[in-house]
Every structure is written in C-alpha cells, then in structure tokens.
Design a protein around this nucleic acid. Structure first.
Length: 206
DNA sequence: CTAATGATGAACT
DNA sequence: GTTCATCATTAGG
C-alpha cells in the first residue's frame, strides 16, 4: 500500500480504513525528540453511529472531524486525557478512526519519561496512554497526517494492505486482524467496529 | 470496583 | 445564562 492508496481508502470507507491503518506508523516530532509507533488497534466512528462525536452535527469541539481525510482530530476527555483520531471521508462528513494502541518503535525513553512507566507493554496500550507517550494534545488537532512535513504524521509500511489479513513489516508473514465490539462506550456498543492485530502484545485489551 | 478531573451539550429558565 | 448528567479513560486498590 502506498500513500495514494491509503488516502483513497480513508476517503471511501471508515471501516476498511481502520483495518488499513493497522500496521502503519504514527510519528511525532517534538522538541523532546521523535517518537514512533506501529498502530496495532483502531476503532471506527461512523456519521450515523450513536457513539460518534459528530452524530449531532458540527460543533467547536468536533469540527476537525468534518475536515478532509487524513486530518488529525484530537479531543480532551474525562477531564484529563487526550485521544487522537484519523479523520476519514470527504469534507463535510463526520467520521474518524480512534487510534487505541500502538507498539512503540522509537523514542521509547521519551515515552517512558512522559508516562512515568518503564514497562513498554504499558506505554501505549490505550488511546490516552499513547497520546501522553507521544506528547499529543490539542496543539496537534487539525494537523494533516498525510503530509510528510507535518510534525505528527502517518507513514505507510511497505507490506500493509487493506484486507483482513495484512503482512508483517518484519517477517512478511500474514498477521491476523481480530474484529470486536468497541471499548468503553454505551451507545453503539454492539457494533463490530474495533480491530487489532491478533499477535500483538501491545493492544489495550484482548 | 471507584475516584480523579473538566469540557460538553441537552434541557431547562 | 445555568444546571447537571454524561463521557471514545486511567490508575490504584
């Protein structure tokens, strides 16, 4: 998969895109240094989805969800946490993919310091944990994740594809994707819209 | 299991 | 404009 193909998927289909993002790399450049991680868990939020922030239309908080595909939507929740989404669909449609867990690959010392947590398996295994580890806050809201010059951006791995079974970056063996219901929501709780890599030790929950 | 913590938005006046 | 329940969470017990 190349960047154009990812862009196309992000524009066309939020469920397919959530699977396509698995295996992609999230990069953040900050004064403290660069952090990177491999996306291992995602959730889709659809425009007609009861759990979607954009369900009731555009507000100051969710405005970036209505931007074009590849935009970052960062929101504040539970009084203390930030979560980051990859916006999908064309401008005007409020859909996005919540990044729920990554496998840290670079800047691990920085992440450990920010998180006050030495165990790498507990560094980024949750949507707010990975934001804290990578230094993502409202300052990153609205960034174009598909622009190679952005401080916060997505990188496409050579062997990721848009199918249920993707190739591993390291050994090129097929990696299984598990589909489940989403975590921590009440509305829309029965929909199968969460995806993670079956063999990853870095997901928030099995 | 529950507290911590604050923005949001719905439902009111 | 004000109130109040809710919330795509986490850490600690």
């Amino acid at each position: 998969m190349n960047k154009q193909q990812l862009k196309k998927v992000l524009r066309a289909n939020t469920i397919a895109a959530a699977k396509a993002l698995l295996g992609c790399t999230l990069v953040h450049d900050t004064p403290a240094g660069q952090t990177r991680g491999r996306i291992v868990e995602t959730e889709s939020y659809l425009h007609d989805d009861p759990a979607c922030h954009a369900l009731r239309g555009k507000t100051p908080r969710n405005a970036k969800m209505f931007e074009r595909e590849g935009t970052a939507y960062v929101y504040f929740t539970y009084g203390m946490h930030w979560c980051v989404n990859v916006v999908t669909r064309e401008r005007g449609v409020g859909e996005a993919i919540l990044i729920r867990a990554i496998e840290p690959t670079q800047g691990i010392k920085i992440m450990q310091k920010r998180r006050r947590q030495m165990d790498i398996h507990k560094l980024c295994n949750g949507p707010a944990k990975l934001c804290q580890a990578m230094g993502i806050t409202k300052s990153q809201n609205g960034i174009d994740l598909l622009n190679a010059k952005s401080p916060l951006r997505l990188q496409i791995n050579k062997f990721t594809s848009t199918t249920h079974v993707i190739s591993s970056q390291t050994n090129q063996e097929n990696q299984k994707i598990i589909t489940t219901t989403r975590i921590g929501i009440v509305k829309g709780a029965d929909l199968p819209l969460r995806f993670y890599l079956a063999n990853s030790k870095f997901v928030s929950r099995k």
